[in-house]
Design a protein around this nucleic acid. Structure first.
Lengths: 232, 232
DNA sequence: GTCTATATCGAGATAGAC
DNA sequence: GTCTATCTCGATATAGAC
């Protein structure tokens, strides 16, 4: 077994194309990508364990043996989706934090740091975009992932380190302990953005809450998290 | 199929005894309760789908057929654990909110409402208590539950309604829409309290964060959420 | 009520033809 | 690369003896 690169921070792999953009010369998507897209969607909607390779190959309209041929196993397919999407997300976050650093002489305020942390995944939630399922997949991975994925999530914190470092600088009045906890709380806001939780919120609010206005939602989330950080 | 009572708010069922307290006259725990406790623990630690009835009966040291005899099916067992623990949790929350209402002439401040929402599940997380696995089970149910459990979670919001009502009263300066969102964010703090997330936080902080000091953790969480609510 | 043995099914993986 | 057919395993559930 080859070990996958544990760093999901900034990878060298090609992440530039949307899934559907990998086209064969004949104009139809390659089997491998059909499987990738179908699997991501089914996993995101129904959960990892409830979706079988048969479900995936049926959805992708490819042969049953395709998954093992192209990916080796169902778990390897899961891991590849996870690593690719995680790398994309962390790259977007790193880019925004980098820009915030550039705009504030290396010492961005709390709000800018939180915005770089929160905005990328919430932008993905836009129903008008094609990334809604990707972010649902990643949220699911946090609780339903394979052992390998869980180990990566637990131990690979390199992408978070630069955010915690920036927050430590931006909040000198807080103890480091307190900064780490508040970062944890802020991440909790993001991880709670599941379909089912939105549904419940809509039930409770009588339809008042619109999760499809992503820019407004980002503002609400950043406001909430920032207030938590600024508190003495 | 008999429909279980969808209201998990305040039920009439007996919730007064700890699991291990149901003892037969011979002094050994009844099979049914052995199964219940073992199943809750394994589900909480490993997830619902990854645990088989064989794992459970082996852990409980009872016969393989016990689950189907006493509960009907694996899913029915899951649902019973879920409904019992949810009812217990909501009862504790309702009691605290009731007390806050009594102490503040029916108009408790935001902090008291949030405390009633947050303190019960976080108290359960005390490693010195016996409820740590119960709260991990309930957190898992939010993403890994059966269709029936998910439906209950999505549609049964009666226990949340009294909290949103209290917050609407306590925050007249906010639009209802904003209040519902901030309640959603506050719940996100709670749902993020998984073993794996604590592990990651500990990795990131170099062991600075101690999740076993529950009273301190409750204060941190209430502080964070309250600041988010008080913001203009 | 409890246990052994088994029925039945669906899963992931693979062999081998094309 | 792709497909069909199949292997093998582990799951839930149940029948029937005690």
């Amino acid at each position: 077994m080859t070990q996958p690169d544990p760093s999901l921070d900034l990878t060298d792999q090609d992440l530039s194309l949307d899934d559907e953009a990998h086209l064969t010369q004949a104009g139809c998507a390659a089997t491998r990508d059909l499987v990738f897209v179908a699997a991501e969607r089914l996993f995101a909607v129904h959960g990892f364990q409830k979706v079988s390779v048969r479900d995936i190959t049926a959805e992708a309209k490819v042969n049953l043996a395709s998954i093992n041929y192209h990916f080796g196993s169902k778990d390897a397919l899961l891991l590849e989706i996870f690593t690719r999407r995680t790398a994309e997300l962390n790259r977007a976050r790193a880019k925004m934090l980098h820009e915030a650093n550039a705009a504030h002489a290396g010492k961005p305020p709390v709000r800018a740091v939180l915005h770089a942390l929160i905005a990328p995944p919430v932008r993905w939630m836009d129903p008008k975009g094609e990334r809604l399922i990707s972010v649902q997949f990643l949220i699911r991975a946090r609780s339903e992932g394979t052992d390998q994925m869980r180990d990566i999530l637990r131990t690979d914190v390199s992408h978070l380190r630069r955010f915690s470092d920036a927050l430590l600088v931006a909040c000198p009045q807080l103890t480091p302990e307190e900064v780490y906890w508040r970062l944890h709380f802020s991440l909790g806001l993001i991880h709670n953005n599941r379909f089912a939780e939105f549904d419940r919120l809509n039930t409770l609010s009588g339809g008042l809450t619109r999760e499809d206005e992503v820019d407004l939602l980002i503002q609400r989330m950043v406001n909430f998290a920032e207030a938590g950080f600024l508190r003495a």
